[in-house]
Amino acid sequence: MKNSVKSLIAVLLGLVAGALLMVLTGHNPVEGFKYLFQGGLKNPERIGNTLATSTPLILTGLSVAFAFRTGLFNIGVAGQMLFGGFCATAIGLTVDLPKGLLLPLMILVGFIGGALWAVIPGLLKARYNVHEVVSTIMMNWIAYWTIYYIVPAYFKGESLETESRQLPPEAMLHQQWLSDLFQGSYVNLGFFIAVVAVIVVAFLINKTTLGYELKAVGFNRHAAEYAGIGVKRSIVLSMFISGGIAGLAGVAQYAGNASSLQIGILPSQGFDGIAVALLGANTPVGVFLSALFFGILYSGRGFMNAMTEVPPEIADSIIAIIIYFAATSILIERVIRKLKLRRAANKKQGE
């Protein structure tokens, strides 16, 4: 069964389960879903806000998917996103350049910051066979405490010690023409960064020799090594690229959706990216569509609660159930296969 069909079935089952939860809590599921989707798509402003909400999810999902396609499970996307966003924020607060030069520099530094944070687990994996799940989780918390110390010490905000100073307008991804196009929403250039990243990763994975080598390592590391592919180099490079994409998510979040960096918080988008990649079947286009769907749910849950008093946790439950069914898609595939075999057998008996 095609991965797209599995994802659609997972989404459908999640929505059905959400409808049952609404019924059990005494709410009308038709109205609930109506306002849930209106909350994300009702007008240009809400569509723009949905795109902005989806932007870091696209990039974190792409980061997880890229690593997974090359045989690595990058759980450290949250830390890489945080550190990449911090590096970009530090440049935005300390470097005096015109916006046309400052933003590209911030994007580049954010990518490099996230990439270097991911290279450490890559080197540990390649050289000492340290499992990347363990090392990337540890790097999450190292990033957390590093930012927790550096921001109050060197970039403390004017009024709050728990966040950095506000970025100046020339260091922000906001564009007035884009906000006006979506009737005042907070959509920003980060969305275009995400679209470009999807296109580049799709081309890299599917159309280049490097992508073929990285996928070969992911499919069978020993066979790839026998074929002459540098496995250790591929592991480090894969983590570098994956972490760099996560760093771009940090730039989009902290210089686009927000204007400062808060301490004491690991960005939830880093963990949500795992779910986005899972539902998107680890393909760039699938990740893009999956992130947009999650963005609609996240944007619409507050509106649904305001209009119908359906708890916003219902939307969270729908997402969790969708993830569950996406993770167990192999069971769905087996059920469908059995039904097909049974139908074929009944048809043969009827003849």
Rank of each mutant, 00 (worst) to 15 (best):
Y254R: 02
A118P: 04
M239S: 00
V133N: 13
A246R: 04
F155K: 09
T89R: 07
F66H: 07
A326W: 09
E132Q: 14
S164I: 14
I274V: 13
L278H: 03
D316K: 04
K125E: 12
A252I: 10
L339N: 15
E45H: 15
E170C: 09
A291C: 04
K125I: 09
V64R: 05
L248W: 06
T146E: 03
M22D: 02
H174T: 14
F66R: 04
F66Q: 01
Y186G: 10
L181C: 01
M239R: 08
Y324G: 07
L204Q: 00
F271S: 12
P311Q: 06
V335H: 02
D316S: 10
E225M: 14
I332E: 01
T50L: 01
G190L: 03
Y298I: 11
P29S: 04
L339E: 15
E45S: 14
A327S: 15
Q80N: 04
T283N: 10
G40N: 06
G270K: 05
N305K: 04
L339G: 15
G157M: 03
I229A: 02
A326C: 12
H27N: 05
Y154M: 10
M106V: 03
G218L: 11
A143W: 01
K6Q: 13
N346W: 12
H174L: 14
V287P: 04
K6E: 08
L116E: 10
L261E: 11
S63R: 12
G264K: 11
L189G: 05
T50F: 08
S268M: 12
M172F: 06
F37N: 05
V196W: 00
V133W: 09
G247P: 01
